[in-house]
Design a protein around this nucleic acid. Structure first.
Lengths: 231, 231
DNA sequence: CAACAATTAAAACGCTCGTTTTACCCGGAG
DNA sequence: CTCCGGGTAAAACGAGCGTTTTAATTGTTG
């Protein structure tokens, strides 16, 4: 009861339905009837559908970036020997487990993130960039600092490759998992998949440089105290 | 004029608009007015909006898979020493250049492919799988054969990582390129990006295995007569 | 030229959408 | 008790959607 209840019910229903069908394909009527509240409640509490979409993302992204920032700070202070593989995997795990511990499904989060990229909702992109752009840049900067021998342009392209691999595969996790289970009878947990994804991402970030003869300096791509030699 | 003209004008307009805004966000009225044809022409020539969407993809995917199949056959017959990096990059280049030579913008194609994955158009997914599933499986099989030491489940996850990196980054090519140009003043062509993407994908496919101690056998990931030693 | 089928044009239909309006409920302050 | 304001409920609004129907216009063929 009370205000909070209606707001939460709407957010919960919207989160699930958006992740399943996308934004434009999910009507406010479907959301409110799923949530068991009146149609007008969305406009009353959130103002508009756009603002509801943003609220759904805010509920995911705010704790996510907080956890991420905390972890980055912790690692920065410890100044441990850079182990890119371990760094990435623990980031994945900490951030997603943090979400899960607050009752937010990490797979659904990734699915929504994938939608945010591809469903050209201009307002959503602007909202996310303005609100969480700093966290993103901090993460990217820290990663770049761990790869000093990769030139900036190559690094950023690889960062996008990595984001693509992550968002794409995790946002379709259930579908991919179902296929693999049918074909090989092997079940994959999200944790397992992250354990596969992290070394793959590292390998991509530290791959030998493209272009004519200018391969990177041998040994430079594997940071001292190296993670995996991606031979 | 004549039938073909109207059909082509509709396809051209739909292709551009779908790539820009997505499927549900693009109305038939926008398409037909952009194409300069009557609204009813879509239903007359294509039957429905769904079938128009499929027709747009067919015009891309049929030549694309034909070129891909031809290239796979050629390489299979030549039985050259497996050079994964070279294989992938030439596949990328041949397939996309082949499209370009037929007047179909490769970037737009990638953008549409990205949309097909994320905009849950059930009919479209079914259409693509039933029509082009064989080509996809052939490509995946050939790639898997080149990586005998990677267990099947890991291979397929990495294949999805690779597809994610490819589709995601190429479908947002213009946006990413604009950012990098602003930040570093460096222009990136599609060709250049493919030259960056191929080695990154290979590094991901051949990365050391996850899990406890069971890294792959050293040297095994780099096929004999190897491409670049991705040290 | 006449007749016919294919195509285009214009208008309307029925439906769903996001949003707004209006009325109603109900708990706490004066 | 009265009043009042935050919240809910129900209904309606106007716009846009995909599709269909009905007419007009072509172009081709006998």
């Amino acid at each position: 009861m009370s205000q909070t209840d209606t707001v939460h019910r709407i957010l919960d229903a919207a989160e699930v339905l958006f992740a399943e069908r996308g934004f434009t394909e999910t009507s406010l009527r479907t959301i409110t009837s799923t949530a068991g509240v009146n149609l007008a409640a969305v406009n009353y509490h959130f103002g508009s559908k756009k603002e509801l979409i943003q609220a759904v993302f805010e509920r995911f992204l705010t704790p996510f970036t907080e956890i991420l920032n905390r972890e980055l700070t912790r690692r920065g202070a410890a100044s441990e020997p850079l182990q890119l593989d371990d760094l990435l995997q623990s980031l994945y795990r900490v951030a997603l487990a943090g979400l899960a511990s607050q009752g937010r499904d990490p797979k659904r989060f990734m699915r929504l993130l994938g939608l945010a990229y591809t469903q050209s909702q201009g307002h959503l992109r602007r909202f996310i960039v303005s609100r969480y752009g700093d966290s993103y840049r901090r993460f990217a900067g820290q990663l770049a600092a761990a790869l000093p021998h990769v030139d900036p342009v190559t690094f950023y392209w690889r960062l996008y490759f990595m984001l693509g691999a992550t968002v794409f595969s995790l946002s379709s996790f259930d579908a991919i998992e179902a296929i693999l289970r049918e074909d090989f009878g092997a079940e994959s947990s999200l944790e397992e998949t992250l354990a596969r994804l992290a070394p793959a991402a590292v390998a991509m970030l530290t791959a030998p440089m493209p272009g004519v003869g200018s391969g990177q300096v041998p040994g430079a791509s594997a940071p001292r105290g190296s993670t995996g030699d991606n031979r």
